[in-house]
Write a protein that binds this DNA or RNA. Structure first.
Lengths: 332, 332
DNA sequence: TTGTAGGCGTTATCAG
DNA sequence: CTGATAACGCCTACAA
């Protein structure tokens, strides 16, 4: 691999001059610039990003913590982040936290040791205090899909409460009253907020919250299955169930069908996130749109603006969810 | 951030000694080691990975090229790679190639400029010659889910031909004769091989390949939809369709149902990959298992062994697909 | 506009 | 077992 030194030799200029043309510095005459460019081409020179990082104290890398590398949700998020950052010549280092406190902390340590210029975190298990302490360190952080009041300018978040509200409201609008709810792990703020929205919708419609029609799942398909089983076993009547995400909804659908429910007539089911596969379930799943790709992009833009000083005029911190009406819910 | 120099000062030893304890070099007395460790702890010292990389000419990073960051397939693959590498203290830089030649090349250039120690590539659009040329450069490469004969020791691949065969064979076993096929883009070897397996199964069962019952899709849901539409429009009788992946199968299912088919009785559908959601479709999708997580792990192990000299005894280059029988196919 | 020289935080090669 | 000291490849004042 050619080094900047060899290029300077071939072009008959100094290291500094080569460095200048590499970095598009204005103060180089056309002539020298051409000479240097030619030498670079001839040697197939490419700057060593590592040496650049060390010298400039800027690694051009952004650490990203997600819960899982797999799954419809984080894929979209990573895609949004990567696209935006890559266009700016930055790269991402992605690491999973598996929604466990220790692993999330490990992951963050790991990213920090890599000297990332900034961190974009989808942290679910660590507490606010940890994040607040972290934000005081040198490496800037952005929180995605999480709201910490004192860090609000570093947060990109979705109005989950509203989403939960919209979901339940959609069911009420169809005449449902006995509405079951399968939550995600309440250690996660998303899960808590969506549940709060559900409760608000019930309240506004003078429907009492029935603890027997509540189940705490895990945001995975089995959570939906277990939840539905729980409701059926409890013998409480219910005509609809709202699931705190699409994956649980798909699990609930499967279990319902296996137990003789004719969907959607016997049971209305609504999800949350509008994952790529939601439209391909049967019946096509009514759900709440979670603009996670856009949120990822926005987190990346925030980094570009705050850390690299790039002009990014339109920074949006809060996103609103929307109802996506399909066939999985029906009139009661 | 504390540097190695400050640690050496505090511990009253030289830089070299600190470096030794950082790298677990044997030649340090217990006493000095303790002194140094204490100093490190006191200063909350963490080695600067970038400086280490520059000095050691080893970035401890592995570049990974995938087609898409999102989607059920690549998520699993990345998870397998990351898990294995992370346990070894390495990190991955992931970049998408979007199945386009230019973008794949860009992505590879990008990873190369980052001075990755090795590349794990799921390259679909670049041709064999490009890869062969690439493999002659300094950075070692591993090809995942792709077979290039002259690079076979660098390949981790699935027997796609066998997979295609198994799929069609499963349908034949149920008495189907008029079997339609929706392929992926034939520029991708996976797609070609699966199709070849399909044809072999037909041949072995003395069923003629009917071009009217063949459609080239795109590995996405719309491909399945378009394929099914094509078959229906062509007025050819068919009782089953094999799709070259699960996403197309889900698209085909949706379209079929929207056009009056009662699944699976009116039409048997089989997929490929056994993605996480396959079991949650309706009817649960019969498919061919693609052990992509394990293949990702294996690619990572190969890197660990070849590049970092870690002992990894069990290297498996070829994986066999298996039939996963569920409810989406039925007796004719 | 161009060149010189010091430094970024480590590793690695020698001596001792 | 320990300590100097020269790389690693590039950036960036500062000079010219």
């Amino acid at each position: 691999m050619a080094t900047i030194y060899q290029v300077s030799q071939l072009a008959g200029v100094s290291l500094a001059t080569v460095s200048r043309v590499v970095n598009n510095n204005k103060n180089v005459s056309e002539k020298t610039r051409d000479k240097v460019k030619q030498a670079m081409a001839q040697l197939d020179y490419r700057p060593n990003a590592i040496a650049q990082s060390l010298a400039s104290n800027c690694s051009n890398s952004i650490g990203v913590l997600v819960s899982e590398l797999s799954g419809p949700f984080f894929g979209e998020m990573m895609a949004g982040i990567e696209e935006e950052l890559r266009n700016a010549g930055k790269h991402v280092i992605i690491t999973p936290g598996h929604s466990e406190e220790d692993k999330e902390k490990d992951g963050i340590e790991f990213l920090l040791s890599r000297h990332c210029d900034a961190l974009i975190l989808h942290a679910e298990a660590v507490n606010d205090d940890y994040l607040i302490a972290l934000s005081k360190k040198k490496t800037p952080i952005i929180l995605i899909s999480r709201m910490v009041e004192s860090l609000s300018s570093h947060c990109i978040s979705l109005d989950n409460e509203l989403g939960g509200y919209l979901a339940t409201q959609a069911l009420v609008a169809k005449g449902h009253v006995d509405i079951a709810y399968i939550a995600g792990a309440l250690t996660k703020s998303d899960a808590k907020d969506r549940l709060a929205g559900h409760k608000r919708a019930l309240k506004e419609n003078n429907i009492a919250f029935n603890p027997c029609l509540y189940f705490q799942g895990d945001f995975k398909q089995t959570g939906g299955k277990n939840g539905l089983k729980h409701f059926i076993d409890s013998k409480q009547p219910f005509s609809a169930v709202v699931c705190a995400n699409d994956e649980m909804a798909s699990g609930a659908m499967k279990y319902a069908r296996e137990h003789g429910f004719n969907l959607p007539n016997d049971l209305s089911i609504i999800g949350f996130d509008n994952g790529i596969f939601a439209d391909y379930l049967f019946p096509p799943l009514t759900t709440i749109n979670n603009p996670i790709f856009a949120m990822g992009q926005m987190a990346a833009r925030l980094v570009l603006k705050n850390v690299y000083g790039k002009e990014k005029p339109l920074i949006q911190h809060f996103f609103k969810p929307e109802l996506i009406l399909r066939d999985s819910i029906t009139e009661r």
